[in-house]
Amino acid sequence: MIGQMFEGVPARALACGALLLAALLAAPYVVNDYLLTVLIIILYYAYTGQAWNIMMGFAGQLSLGHALYVGLGAYTAAAFYVHFGISPWIGILAAIPIAIAGGAIIGFLAFRFRVGGVYFAILTIAFAEFARVGFDHFNWVGGSSGFFLPVANYAVSDLWNLRGKPMMFYYLILAMTVLAFVICRLLLTSRIGYFWLAIREDEEAARAIGIDTFRYKMYAVILSAGMTSLAGIFFAFFYNNLFPEQVFHISRSIELILAPIIGGVGTLFGPILGAFLLTGLSETMHAILYGFGIDIPGVKQVFYGLCLLFVVIVLPHGVWPWVARVLGIKERRS
């Protein structure tokens, strides 16, 4: 396992990775609360981006409905906590299966009935929209008027119930991001990862060399959905409020895929780099605009759009492959 993790990784890449990790571990002791929140957002997008990337970047299945899995995870764990006082760590045991069931239904229908490409993407949107409208009418978890977790000022962080200060959330999401990275790295250097790439590249050819493409595409959807639902739990307990209009909205799904696309679809560092770039730049811009007294809704999203345009036109494979070349680190497959 450990050997597989580091096999073929150039020393320079290891050094860069270690440096980044050290900086992230030390960050809460250096930065102020605002920056810590920004870092939490960055890592949140890095994590979700990594999870989405399994489906699109590895197995080539474009999902534009990942907000569905975030929402299912968020609502499940939050409902268990609010209604029964059950810790989110136990809530996971329900949240993951529910999100996986959602993904499995979509995957099964799409792959059995050969709904591919753009049609598949639209199908994923459709299911997220279903959930949005459904949860609007689901009064047990607040319906369209929102679902709220109890908030208080905590002197000590309660990790078991995920109630506490930003620093706890920071280390939690950092751990999740590192774990997701490790999982993706291991997957990519194993049989399943190779099979996914083959399916992404050419599904018919993949079938011709004996790959049960239905099964492996299902694995990708299930894994991606499960991982994304964990981000949902984090989201619920960090923000403490959930509105179907916001959680399941198509623009959430699009936000989730920006980081890996800008960073580099199918790469391991892409989602992380993309999240840093996107959130970092948008916060900087926000600060500048705020400094000039301009506070208009929509500016940030226009900026996202322009970033996306720039990257997709100028660096179609994302920023990371380009950075990696400049740094002299070549990720084996991108």
């Binding site: 099979f195 790439l197 083959a198």
Partner: peptide, 24 residues
């Protein structure tokens, strides 16, 4: 011909080999 374009020559063949050789 339909090789997997973005994969290296080696990885193209490795994918095939993985069918009966489970270890990488």
């Amino acid at each position: 011909v339909r090789p997997f374009p973005a994969l290296s020559v080696e990885d193209n063949v490795v994918v095939g080999a993985l069918l009966r050789h489970r270890g990488l």
